[in-house]
Each structure stands twice: as structure tokens, then as C-alpha cells.
């Protein structure tokens, strides 16, 4: 079976043009395959490159070399249009930060990925409300913008948005951070359900118990750290 994520010999360096053109190699020869229905946890110390790898998988950072395939799309060298289509249909991302247009009601923020796919607005709204209810966002907040919500509430809005469409591939950046035990349990169930329907997941989980429960494998990204050149 072809893997959902297929990463081969990926390297990445940052060139800081305005700081003496310093070249900072951050990743070398990273390879990783994630099958459908599988969850892989990225581990390694802070600064080891977990987020960098996640961002490359999302097309947010450009890889310097190698190949990153997600589903049918090769991200290295892809046109913006192809990356947008991939993100719309195939690849979901739950980040730690909520970035939204101010004033847009929470219900619409969560419905957004389905509307972008052209789903019926009525059904979409119902589905968004279902997700919000499941993540215990009180109904009186649904018509308000999430920009003024607490950290934990914003995180749950982000999760609702990331799971509202059944993405075949998911990137999760600390999905259970800043959640109370009840909501944490809900999120872990959502992840398990996503795996059961065949989604391939790459995640960063600092919560060791959560990681042990949902991840099938752990990959220590320290192994992808470039040799420090003298």
C-alpha cells in the first residue's frame, strides 16, 4: 500500500540574508513514511526540528532538497495552487495558534473548511455546531468571534476546525496541550476515530500518556539533525 506521507531525504537550511548571509542547516536526510490509519509521533528536544518538519509537511516551509509526497501531491516544487488544493481536500492541520479574521463567529470559523469544499451551508453549520458541542464550547459563544476566548477554548476551536472535515491526512501540533482531562479525552477519541477511518497522522505530543495511547510509532527527529560542520 502506498503511504499517505512519503518523505525521502529531505533537508532544510535557513539562509539569513540580513545577518551576514548565515546558513543554518536544520535538517538533513529526513525520511519517513506514514501509512493510512497510522499515527506517528515526532519526538526530540526543543529545537531538534519537530515543528520544522511539520511545517515542511504542510508546505509552510520550503524543503531545500528531497521529496515530500502527501497523497498524490509532491510538495517539493509544487505550485501554490496545488498546495492549496491539497490543504483544502486532503491535508488538515491543527496548530497551537488560532489565526482568524476578526469578527467572524466561531461557528463560521469551524465551518470554514467545509464551505471551502463547496458543501451545503446549512449542513455545514449543523456539522460545525456538532463539533463545537462535542468539544464543550458553550452554545452562547458560537455566535462570537474566538479572538477573545481563553487559550483552552481557542485550542478547542482549532481542533473542531481541524476535525470538521474528514481529512485523509492530519498534522497535529500539541493537540492536548492546555486542555482539562475531560476535553483531553474527547480529543484523544477524535484522533482514534480519525485513525479508524483511515487517516494518516503525524503529531507532536508532549503529553507522554496521550502519545503512548494514540501513536503507533515514535520518530526521534534528532536523527535528522545535520552534522555540525566545524
Amino acid at each position: 500500500m502506498t503511504p499517505m506521507f512519503d518523505i525521502r531525504d529531505v533537508s532544510k537550511s535557513f539562509v539569513l540574508h540580513n545577518q551576514g548571509s548565515a546558513v543554518i542547516p536544520v535538517m538533513a536526510e529526513a525520511s519517513l513514511q506514514v501509512a493510512k490509519g497510522e499515527c506517528v509521533a515526532l519526538t526530540g528536544e526543543s529545537g531538534a526540528g519537530k515543528s520544522t518538519l511539520m511545517r515542511m509537511l504542510y508546505g509552510n516551509y520550503l524543503a531545500s532538497a528531497g521529496s515530500i509526497r502527501v497523497g498524490e501531491t509532491e510538495l517539493v516544487g509544487a505550485q501554490p495552487r496545488e498546495v492549496l488544493a491539497l490543504r483544502r481536500e486532503v491535508l488538515g492541520y491543527v496548530s497551537q495558534f488560532l489565526r482568524v479574521v476578526p469578527r467572524v463567529p466561531t461557528r463560521d470559523v469551524v465551518a470554514d473548511p467545509l464551505l471551502a469544499l463547496g458543501h451545503d451551508p446549512q449542513e455545514t453549520r449543523a456539522r460545525a455546531e456538532e463539533m463545537l458541542a462535542r468539544l464543550r464550547i458553550p452554545e452562547r459563544l458560537w455566535a462570537l468571534s474566538p479572538t477573545t476566548f481563553s487559550g483552552g477554548e481557542q485550542q478547542r476551536v482549532n481542533i473542531a476546525r481541524g476535525f470538521v472535515h474528514s481529512y485523509p491526512a492530519l498534522l497535529l501540533d500539541e493537540p492536548t496541550a492546555s486542555l482539562d482531562p475531560v476535553n483531553r479525552e474527547t480529543v484523544l477519541c477524535l484522533i482514534e476515530e480519525a485513525k479508524a477511518r483511515g487517516a494518516a497522522i503525524v503529531g507532536i505530543f508532549h503529553d507522554a500518556e496521550a502519545r503512548a495511547r494514540v501513536a503507533d510509532r515514535e520518530i526521534d527527529v534528532t536523527g535528522f539533525t545535520p552534522e555540525r560542520a566545524a
Binding site: V15, N60, Y61, L62, V83, L84
Partner: peptide
């Protein structure tokens, strides 16, 4: 040129890096 979040988060050209920072 590029995808909006990619250009803003991983700018390649010296001028874009200056602009973003």
C-alpha cells in the same frame, strides 16, 4: 512569489526577510 503563509514564514529573498522581520 509563493503561497502566502510560506512567503511570510519562510521568506527566501533578502528583501522579503527584511520586510517580514
Amino acid at each position: 512569489t509563493g503561497l502566502t503563509d510560506q512567503v511570510l514564514d519562510d521568506p527566501q529573498h533578502a528583501y522579503t526577510q527584511l520586510l517580514v522581520s
